[in-house]
Design a protein around this nucleic acid. Structure first.
Length: 684
DNA sequence: TTAGGGTTAG
C-alpha cells in the first residue's frame, strides 16, 4: 500500500513509497516507524490517514535521512470509505468511529449496509453516544440517507429504549414504508404503558390511511397493544381478512394475547385451527395455560405435543414446571427435573425448578438445586427467600438474604417482599420494621402496596392493630383489597369485631362479589356468637349471587391426583376413608384432642358441629394419604382455602401419633407437620 | 431494516 499526500514544497500530489513516517496528532508524538526493508513500506493501519504526517524520505539502504518533506496528508475518498467499511465489518467500533469522523469532514458517505453493520455494533456495545454521532453524520451537509437506513436508525433508538428520539426521527422521514411504521408500532406495543398501547393502535390506523399495508410483522406486534376482548376480536377479524392468520408468528401472537386476557378457549381455538405448529407455538399455548393457573390443560397440551413428535426445549420445560408448581405435583416435577439436566446451564429453567420444589414444599430439593447452580440471579435468590419464608423457615430466609447481599446480588422489589413475608409469618416485628424502614435507603426500593400489605399483616398478626391502621393511613398509594384483607385476617385472630367489620366493608366496596370476604365476615360474627349477623351476611351473599367456594384438597398418589371436596362423597374409597378418619379422631381424643368448634361457620350445636369439622377436605386427604403412601413418604396436600385451626391441631397430633410427616399448602403458606409441631409455629 | 415462547409476589 502506498501513502498519498501533498508535498508542501512541490505542492503536488505524491506517492510516498519509501519513507520513515513520524506522525503526530496535534503536537503529540505518537509513533516512529523505520522502513524494513527499504523500498517496501509496511502496511500501515489506516489510522495514519487521520494525522498530519511528517514524511522522512530516505535514500535506499541509507540509515540517514537526507531530506524532509512535510505533507498535509489527504487520503483519497475511496481509501477512506474502504477503511471505514473494513472497520465496520470487523466490528471495530473505535476505529470505525474515527474513520467516520474523517469521512464527515470530507463529506463522504459509505453504503447503507455498512452503516447497518456499524449500528449493530453500537447496539451490541450499548453505545448510545456513538449511535447519535452516526445519526448526525448521516444527515450532515444536507445528506439524505435512504429509507432503509433511516429505518435502521429508528430501530436503534427503539432498542435503546429512546422512544422520543425514535418518534422525532419518524416524524422527519420524507417517506415511510411498512418497516418504518412497524418498527414504531412494535416499539409502542412492547411497553407496559396503556398510553403507548393506544399510540400503537392509532399508528396502525394512520398507517392504513397513508396507504401502507400492514404485514405479518405489523400484526404480530400490534396484537400486544390490544386492550380488551372487543378490540382484540376486531384486530383478529382484520388479520383474517388479509389472510395473514396463517402466519405462525401472527398465530403465536394471537395465542399469547388471548391467553393474556384469560380467553383460553379462544387461544386453544386458534391453536387447534393450525394445520402444523412448530415448537414455539406449542410453547406459546402451553405457557399460556401454565401462566393462567390452568395447569391441567397445560399438562394435557404437553402430552399432545410429545405425541405429535416434538422434543421439549428449555421454554417448554419451564412452562411445564410452572404447571407442576401450580398443581403442587412434586412427583411429576421430579420427572421433569431429569429432562432439565440436559439444559443445566439455563438460568430461567433452573429458577423455575427451584420454585417448583419450594412450592411443592420440598426445601431439601430446592436447596440442593440452588447450591449446584453455576449461575444465579436476583430471581433465584428471591425464589429461595420466598420459598423458605412461605414454608415456615423465616430465620433461614433472613440468613439467606444476608448471604445474597454478601454475594453482591442487588435485591429487587420482590426480594424485599420475601424478607417482609418471612418477618410477618414468624412474628419478627422489629426485624420487619427495620427492613421496611431501610429498604429505600439501603436498596433504593420504594415500598409499594405489597410491602405495606406485608407490614399491615406483620403488625396485625402481632396484635398491634392500631399501628396497622395507622400505617394504612400513612400509605402513599391507595390501600387495596390485599391491604384490607391483611387487616381483616388480623382482626379475626385477635377478635376485634368492629375493626373487622370496617375492613370487610372496605373490601366489599372494592370487590362487591368477593366470596372470601363474606365468609371471613361471617366467620367473625360466628366466633362472636352473632348468629343474626351471620344470617344477614348469608342473605347478602344470596342476594348478590355470591357462592361460597367449597373447601377442596388434592393429593398425588401413584401419579394420580385425588380430590376431596367438603360434603362430596364421590371418591370410590370415601366410606373406608371416613371410617378410618373416625378411628383416628377417636384415638386422638383419648390423647387429649378436643375439636375446636370455633371454626365452624354454621350455628350448630354439639355433635353436629363436630361432624362438619370432621369431614373437612384436608382431614380426608390426610387419612387417604396415610392409607395409600408408605410410612417413610411425606403426605403432601394442596388446599384451595386457608387451613382451619381445628385441622391444624388435628394434623399436628396425628403426625406425632403416627410418626408421619405431613405438608399442607394453602393459598398463602405451607405447614410442615412433624412430631407434634408445625413449621408455622402456630402463627399463620 | 421490522415480529413470537420460559423464572420470583399478590
Amino acid at each position: 500500500m502506498m501513502l498519498i499526500g501533498y508535498d508542501r514544497e512541490s505542492m503536488k500530489l505524491r506517492h510516498f513509497r519509501m519513507c520513515t513516517i513520524v506522525y503526530y496528532s496535534s503536537s503529540m508524538y505518537i509513533r516512529r516507524m523505520k522502513p524494513t526493508p527499504p523500498f517496501i513500506l509496511q502496511y500501515w493501519t489506516s489510522s495514519c490517514s487521520f494525522f498530519t504526517c511528517t514524511l522522512l524520505r530516505l535514500r535506499p539502504y541509507s540509515a540517514t535521512a537526507t531530506a524532509t518533506a512535510t505533507a498535509d496528508f489527504s487520503p483519497s475518498p475511496s481509501l477512506l470509505i474502504d477503511e471505514f467499511t473494513r472497520f465496520c465489518y470487523q466490528r471495530d467500533l473505535p476505529r470505525a468511529m474515527k474513520a467516520m469522523k474523517s469521512m464527515q469532514k470530507h463529506q463522504l458517505w459509505a453504503d447503507s449496509i455498512t452503516y447497518s453493520e456499524l449500528i449493530k455494533c453500537c447496539l451490541a456495545h450499548h453505545a448510545i453516544h456513538h449511535g447519535r454521532l452516526i445519526h448526525k453524520h448521516l444527515f450532515s451537509h444536507g445528506h439524505r440517507p435512504a429509507t432503509f437506513l433511516i429505518n435502521i436508525l429508528l430501530n436503534m433508538y427503539v432498542k435503546f429504549n429512546l422512544l422520543d428520539d425514535a418518534q422525532a426521527l419518524f416524524d422527519q422521514m420524507p417517506h415511510r414504508n411498512v418497516v418504518s411504521w412497524t418498527t414504531l408500532i412494535s416499539a409502542y406495543a412492547n411497553t407496559n404503558a396503556m398510553l403507548h398501547h393506544d399510540k400503537a393502535l392509532q399508528f396502525l390506523i394512520l398507517m392504513l390511511r397513508d396507504g401502507v399495508r400492514p404485514n405479518m410483522f405489523t400484526y404480530s406486534s400490534v396484537l400486544r397493544a390490544s386492550h380488551g376482548l372487543p378490540n382484540l376480536q376486531q384486530l383478529h377479524s382484520s388479520i383474517i381478512k388479509t389472510g395473514l392468520d396463517s402466519d405462525v408468528f401472527v398465530r403465536s401472537a394471537l395465542i399469547d394475547i388471548y391467553s393474556k386476557w384469560g380467553e383460553l378457549h379462544n387461544s386453544l381455538r386458534v391453536f387447534d385451527e393450525m394445520v402444523t405448529a412448530d415448537l414455539v407455538v406449542w410453547n406459546s399455548i402451553i405457557g399460556g395455560f401454565a401462566q393462567n393457573t390452568d395447569g391441567d390443560e397445560a399438562l394435557n397440551l404437553f402430552k399432545r405435543m410429545k405425541h405429535a413428535g416434538f422434543w421439549a426445549d428449555q421454554g417448554t420445560l419451564t412452562s411445564v414446571l410452572r404447571a407442576c408448581t401450580g398443581l403442587a405435583l412434586l412427583e411429576l416435577g421430579r420427572q421433569i427435573h431429569v429432562h432439565v439436566l440436559k439444559f443445566n446451564q439455563d438460568l430461567i429453567l433452573n429458577n423455575a425448578l427451584l420454585d417448583m420444589y419450594c412450592k411443592c414444599g420440598s426445601l431439601e430439593d430446592a436447596n440442593s438445586v440452588f447450591s449446584r447452580m453455576v449461575e444465579t440471579d436476583v430471581v433465584s435468590w428471591s425464589t429461595m427467600i420466598m420459598g423458605l419464608a412461605q414454608n415456615g423457615f423465616s430465620r433461614k430466609a433472613l440468613q439467606l438474604f444476608e448471604s445474597m447481599k454478601a454475594s453482591g446480588t442487588k435485591p429487587n422489589y420482590i426480594t424485599i417482599l420475601g424478607v417482609l413475608f418471612a418477618c410477618s409469618h414468624a412474628g419478627l416485628v422489629e426485624d420487619g420494621q427495620f427492613y421496611f424502614q431501610s429498604m429505600n435507603k439501603c436498596f433504593g426500593i420504594y415500598p409499594g402496596r405489597e410491602h405495606y400489605g406485608c407490614m399491615v399483616d406483620l403488625l396485625g398478626r402481632a396484635g398491634k392493630l392500631d399501628e396497622a391502621v395507622k400505617l394504612i393511613h400513612e400509605m402513599e398509594c391507595e390501600p387495596d383489597t390485599v391491604t384490607w384483607r391483611a387487616l381483616l385476617g388480623a382482626c379475626r385472630v385477635h377478635r376485634n369485631t368492629d375493626l373487622a367489620i370496617y375492613a370487610a366493608k372496605r373490601i366489599l366496596n372494592l370487590e362487591p362479589n368477593d366470596a372470601g370476604t363474606y365468609i371471613l365476615l361471617s366467620n367473625i360474627y360466628a366466633n362472636s356468637q352473632r348468629w343474626e349477623d351471620v344470617a344477614e351476611v348469608r342473605r347478602a351473599m344470596r342476594g348478590r349471587g355470591v357462592g361460597k367456594e367449597p373447601g377442596c384438597s388434592w393429593i398425588e398418589v401413584d401419579k394420580q391426583i385425588h380430590a376431596f371436596i367438603l360434603g362430596d362423597k364421590s371418591h370410590p374409597q370415601i366410606g373406608v376413608i371416613r371410617m378410618e378418619l373416625d378411628q383416628f379422631i377417636w384415638r386422638l381424643k383419648e390423647l387429649g384432642y378436643v375439636p375446636d368448634t370455633n371454626f365452624v361457620l354454621q350455628d350448630l350445636e354439639g355433635e353436629q358441629k363436630e361432624d362438619s369439622l370432621s369431614y373437612h377436605s384436608e382431614k380426608l386427604a390426610i387419612v387417604f394419604g396415610m392409607m395409600s403412601l408408605s410410612r417413610e413418604k411425606t403426605i403432601r396436600i394442596r388446599k384451595n382455602l386457608r387451613i382451619c385451626g381445628d385441622c391444624h391441631v388435628f394434623a399436628k397430633l396425628l403426625a406425632k401419633m403416627e410418626h408421619r410427616n405431613i405438608v399442607i399448602r394453602d393459598p398463602i403458606r405451607y405447614h410442615h407437620f412433624r412430631n407434634g409441631i408445625c413449621s408455622c409455629g402456630d402463627y399463620w
